[in-house]
Design a protein around this nucleic acid. Structure first.
Length: 269
DNA sequence: TAGGCCATCTGGTCCT
DNA sequence: AGGACCAGATGGCCTA
């Protein structure tokens, strides 16, 4: 929200007091009409008809609705006060949710940069899921490699993280990849096709991209290589050379290179 | 202009 | 009873 520079100026997360008041006044009838016929059945004609009510009619109707709902009469001002309170709570709740969503965006790689469009909520959630799955997969791969190394040397006779602690194994996986800005390993993998064909499903990725089929997840320059934009490139960033890290030496199955990386769009179907 | 995304309002439901 | 949570409806903004 706060990071949505394209919207925040014209669409504040918290409306002006006047907006709330006007909206409440406008819906003092609308809302309570919903108490009768439910919002789902409110037809535009009904709404238009209700909007034509006089203030006295509105008050009467509001009181009737309140009486029907709460079994007790409340003054219009009391009802309005309650409604404002509830609306305020809901706004705060949604605002907190958006703050949390922004926090999630911040720890997501490739979501930073001047030309990068803010991830949508659904894209953020889906990418976060894939990111977690990728990290888990990377960790498993690390464990496997370490196990092979030490297993063959007879040092440990096998990999057992609980005995080894975190010094040996936690290093390669940055706790906060977005903050580290290290080129590997997490920066690019989440956007690669399924690392684990069982857990990291392609539909999850395609689902993300299907949200914004035209410009992909991010607002990238027109010269972007694909729907994901140049921000998603791991190889080729800066030097155009492949990352030398061990993770990149072993690209996921079916992904020989980024250049042949399947487009993360619905056209893969 | 259509479609996507979003904020907000609202009523219902569940929980404490 | 009050608050949290949820989902539907609505309308505005933005982009292709």
């Amino acid at each position: 929200m706060d990071s949505d520079t394209s919207r925040v100026s014209s669409r504040p997360s918290s409306p002006e007091v006047d907006d709330i008041f006007i909206s409440t006044l406008k819906k003092s009838v609308h809302g309570f009409s919903g108490a009768v016929s439910s919002t789902q059945s409110d037809s535009p004609l009904e709404m238009a008809g209700l909007r034509g009510l006089s203030s006295a009619d509105e008050e009467t109707l509001a009181l009737r609705m309140a009486a029907k709902k709460d079994r007790k009469l409340l003054s219009e001002s009391e009802l309005q006060s309650i409604r404002l309170k509830i609306n305020s709570r809901e706004r705060k709740r949604m605002h907190d949710l958006n703050v949390a969503m922004d926090g999630l965006r911040e720890v997501m790689p490739y979501a930073h940069g001047p030309s990068v469009r803010k991830l949508s909520k659904i894209a953020t959630l889906l990418l976060a899921r894939n990111y977690i799955l990728m990290l888990s997969n990377s960790l498993e791969e690390m464990k496997r490699l370490v196990s092979e190394i030490y297993g063959s040397s007879g040092h440990h006779g096998g990999f057992h993280p609980s005995a080894c602690g975190t010094m040996t194994h936690a290093g390669p996986v940055p706790a906060h990849p977005a903050a580290s800005h290290a080129p590997h390993p997490a920066v690019h993998h989440p956007l690669l096709p399924p690392v684990s064909t069982s857990s990291l499903s392609a539909p999850a990725i395609s689902a993300v991209t299907s949200v914004r089929p035209h410009h992909g997840l991010l607002k990238a320059p027109a010269a972007a290589a694909g729907p994901l934009g140049s921000s998603f490139q791991h190889w080729g960033v800066g030097t155009g050379m492949p990352c030398p890290c061990s993770m990149c030496q072993v690209p996921p199955p079916h992904v020989p290179s980024m250049s042949t990386m399947p487009r993360l769009t619905s056209d893969s179907k």
